[in-house]
Design a protein around this nucleic acid. Structure first.
Lengths: 125, 125
DNA sequence: CCCTCGTATCGATGAACGTCGATAACACCC
DNA sequence: GGGTGTTATCGACGTTCATCGATACGAGGG
C-alpha cells in the first residue's frame, strides 16, 4: 500500500519568472506530507525509536506504555497511525500485539526527502 | 505559545522486558517531530519543492502564490513556518522577499531519520 | 509627498489532532 | 465456562492548525 513515495511527475508550472518544474507535484506533496504527519508527533518518534532499538526490532504495547508516559489507549492510537503510515507493522502473537519496524520504510522517506534538497534536486537553471 | 505539553515521562527507559536504550531521547524526539511538523503539510512540501527547483534555488512570494493556489497571507504563513524550521531562509532584496533552501537542512533531517531505521540503529540484542 | 506594489501581521472560523476514561473485543488459563 | 490479562475502539474535551479577508508595514517611483 505504501508504494508511491518518490514521485517525480513533470507538471508544467512555469509561472511568471523562473519556472522550473518542481520535484513533486500536488499529489506527491500530499502523499509525502501524509508520511511526515505520522512523524510530526514527539510520541510517535519516540515510539518508533523505542521499537527500533528493542530486541529483535519489535515490542509489544506493554513495553511502550511506560517509557512514553501516556495511557494505553493513546499509545495504541499512535501505533495505529504509524502502521497506517507504513512505518510499523503489527503482528498478533498470543495475547500480545508485537510492533515491528518495516525494514525499508524509513529509507523510503529518506529517498523522498532527498528529492527536496538542492544537491539532489534537478538543477533549476 | 509554548504550552504545557511537555510530559516528563520518567527518563529511565529500560522498562520491563527487553529494554534497550532508544536512539533518541524525549528531547530529541520533540525536536525531530518539530521539524517533521513543518513538513507535515502538503502546501509546505510543495513550497519547498518549488523553491528548490527554482532558478538559483530561490523564489519570491509572488512566484509561489500561484502554483499552490492559495492566498498570499497563507503562503507567507507557510513560508514563515519553513523558515522557523530551518529549512528555508529569507532575504529581502528591494521590494521582494526571496526564499532560499538552506543547503544542509534536509541532510540533517535525513541524518536524524537514519537513527530510526533498523539498519543503522544500534542492534537491540 | 503621495501613490503603488509586494509582503507580513492580525483576528476569526472551521477542521483536525492528542489525550483521557470507560468499555468492548480477543486470547489464554483453570 | 468463568476469570484474567492485553489490546483496540468509542465518545468527549481542550488545543492546535490551516485558511481567509482586512489591514499595517516597508520599499520604489512619479
Amino acid at each position: 500500500m505504501r508504494g508511491k513515495m518518490g514521485r517525480m511527475t513533470t507538471t508544467d508550472d512555469a509561472g511568471c519568472c523562473g519556472g522550473t518544474t518542481p520535484a513533486v507535484d500536488v499529489v506527491g506533496a500530499r502523499d509525502l506530507a501524509r508520511t511526515f504527519k505520522a512523524l510530526a508527533d514527539p510520541t510517535r518518534v519516540q515510539l518508533l525509536s523505542i521499537v527500533t532499538a528493542h530486541e529483535g526490532h519489535e515490542a509489544c504495547v506493554c513495553d511502550l506504555t511506560e517509557p512514553v508516559g501516556l495511557s494505553q489507549p493513546t499509545v495504541s492510537h499512535h501505533l495505529k497511525i504509524l502502521v497506517e503510515a507504513g512505518l510499523l507493522e503489527r503482528e498478533q502473537r498470543g495475547r500480545w500485539a508485537y510492533y515491528r519496524a518495516v525494514p525499508g520504510a524509513v529509507d523510503g522517506v529518506v529517498a523522498s526527502l532527498s528529492t527536496l534538497t538542492p544537491e539532489t534536486a534537478p538543477t533549476g537553471a
